[in-house]
Design a protein around this nucleic acid. Structure first.
Lengths: 175, 175
DNA sequence: CCTCATAAGTCTTATTTCAAGACTAATAAA
DNA sequence: TTTATTAGTCTTGAAATAAGACTTATGAGG
């Protein structure tokens, strides 16, 4: 039997990033999903593309299916064979994935330019991804973002605290 | 001596995601960086915030410094003590991080709403992050994106191939 | 001087995860 | 009957992580 990840301590935390990491925070899931976005769907194809241990691949696919990120669907009978496809929830990881890809492009591409180029079919241009504010549409700079707790326990203190580090301010594990 | 990660096989690959994962693809780096974005800067604060093993924290911080994602700067003399601050390269990971956070918010927040709320100081509104096309500004849907190799080896075949799976099409490990 | 406290690690041991690759099951095709 | 496909499962050893005691450098208080 495949042993499940023990790393779900994270999923208990009241932190959206920790919960996301409990799903795709291991060493392979995002690479598997990248392949899925490239239309890779079958076990053998994932394996030869990624050179991942079969055992780990099987476990990771099962986990992503259990989390609803991938769907396991039969593509033939006799013998029944399944393929893995992105669900809406899986597709919703695209911004995170493309942000990492473009970060890698920016800081690690060699003189030949980035290994792959993305084109937006709707407008016909090659593009980079730009993270914007849903309210005003402006590109986001982390220095312009304030955060505060969502479920008000403490009366909504804005976190960009001054230098007074109460040693617990950011300790709440909220993100 | 701290053993370095052995996982740099990835960094050899001609794949921007793999290179990004070689830097922040382990179980802790993104959580450490989240804290850094929340103005956590000192070893003890990272440790108590994340409940990470000190050994792993030390190794991860050293790695992030070596990669230029964090800078290690003295904040006092006698004894010399250092803190860790995001560099530009580290700040550039914000889109990826916030995309994961908002994905977690969307799919895992309970009835109380997301654990933290982001406000864009420039416009004064709470927001979600929206990934847009740098060329036309429209929100990106993965189904509208075509990709092709950047360093033209093969004459630029667009990858959203039809159902003809050549079993090697996406195998090139390019992303 | 002596003891305690702080901050930033380093080290040890046990557990968990991953890598590599042989082996199995179900079925079709030769 | 033998071989080929596809999607796994299993075994073994290596690497990474968890938990927490120990170390170093220094200042503070008595």
């Amino acid at each position: 039997m495949l042993p499940a990840m023990k790393w779900n301590a994270l999923s208990e935390e009241n932190c959206s990033l920790a919960r996301a990491m409990a799903v795709v925070g291991d060493r392979w899931s995002l690479l598997i999903l990248r392949d899925a976005f490239l239309r890779v769907r079958r076990f053998e194809d994932f394996e030869s593309s990624l050179k991942i241990a079969r055992r780990v691949l099987a476990e990771r696919l099962a986990h992503l299916v259990a989390e609803g990120v991938l769907a396991k669907l039969p593509y033939q009978e006799r013998p029944v064979r399944y393929e893995y496809r992105l669900t809406e929830k899986g597709l919703a990881l695209y911004p995170a994935l493309i942000a990492l890809v473009h970060w890698g492009d920016h800081y690690y591409a060699d003189e030949n330019g980035p290994p792959i180029i993305h084109r937006h079919r709707n407008c016909g241009h090659d593009f980079r991804s730009v993270m914007t504010c849903s309210a005003c549409g402006e590109a986001l700079d982390p220095r312009d973002v304030d955060i505060r707790p969502g479920q008000p326990r403490q009366p909504a203190s804005v976190i960009p605290a001054s230098r007074s580090r109460s040693r617990k301010a950011a300790t709440q594990s909220r993100t």
